[in-house]
Nucleic acid binder design. Sequence first.
DNA 1: CACCATGTTCCTTG
DNA 2: CCAAGGAACATGGT
Length: 286
Amino acid sequence: MPELPEVEVLVRHLRPLLQGKVIRSVDIRRARVLRPTSVRSFTQVLQGAKFVGLTRRAKYLLFEIKPKAKTRLRTLVGHLGMTGRMYLLPKGRRLPKHAAVVFNLGAIDFIFEDTRYFGRMTLDPVALKDLGPEPLGDDFTVEHFRRKLSGSAQAIKVKLLDQSLVAGIGNIYASEALFRAQISPRLAARRLNAAMVERLWGAIRQVLIEAIEFGSTVALDYAGNGEGERLFYYGKAPEASEVPEERLQVYDRAGRACVRCGTSIKRIVQAARSTFFCPKCQRGAF
DNA sequence: CACCATGTTCCTTG
DNA sequence: CCAAGGAACATGGT
C-alpha cells in the first residue's frame, strides 16, 4: 500500500478525523517502532497531547501535536514501512494481532498496526533531513532532475528509489513511471537524453497524481474485507483487482500482455528488488 | 521447504 | 569520502 499516493490519501482522510482529538492514553505494544525514541519520552510527550494538524512529506506522515500544558508544538513522525496501517477503531473492539501503538482518544482508538514492524511512529525527525524534493512540488524541476541523473552510472529504475533524488516514489510507481515514459529500467541514469529526462519527469508526476485520484475514489470505510468492522481503514481496495482496466500497467504483471503492444511483460531483479517492464515499448536509448 | 513482498538502514567492497 | 550492492529487519502469502 504505502508509497506517496497511498500516504497522501491516508493523510487527507485522517486529518479531519484526528483534528482536535486529545490522546487520553498511549499503549505501546511494540517499542521497536518508536526507535530511536524511548517508550518513556514518547509516553511523556504524547499523554494528554492534542492532534492539531496532519501533513505529509514523501512517505512520512507528520502529525502536529500540542503536548499537554505546553505551547510548543511537536511533530510525531509516522511511516508505514511495507505493511503499516493507521485507522480509527471503536474502543473495546479486539485489537489486531500486530497492533504496534494504540492511542486512546476517548470512545475511539487511533491504531497503528504493522505486520512486519518495519514502520515507525517516532518523535525523532532525523529521517526527514536527507529527503529530496516532493515530486509534485515546485522544487522538483526538470533541471534538478537532469542534474541529479547526469553523473550516475546506476540504472534509472534504481535511481528513482533514491529518496534524496526525489522523495516518495517506491517500487511500484518506479516501474509504472518508466513504462509511461517508455524508458528501459536498465538504462544508466546518465544515459538519458534531454527528451527522456523530461518525459520521465512528466510521467512520474502523472502516475502519482493519477494514483492519488484513484485512491481518493475508494471508500475507506468499507466492510466485508474479512476484518470488516473498522470505522476507518486504508488498504488495498477490494474492487481494485477486479476493475477491467488495470490501474497498474506493468507492476506485478509478468507474463501478461503489455497494454500498449501486447508483448509479454518481463520481470527482472535490480538492487534486489523486482522491476516490471515491456521489453518492446521500453528499449534502451533511442 | 522455497521464494516473494508497497521500505529503510547498515555493512561491506571497490 | 563516495558509489553500488547486498543483507538485515519480521511476518505472512503462495
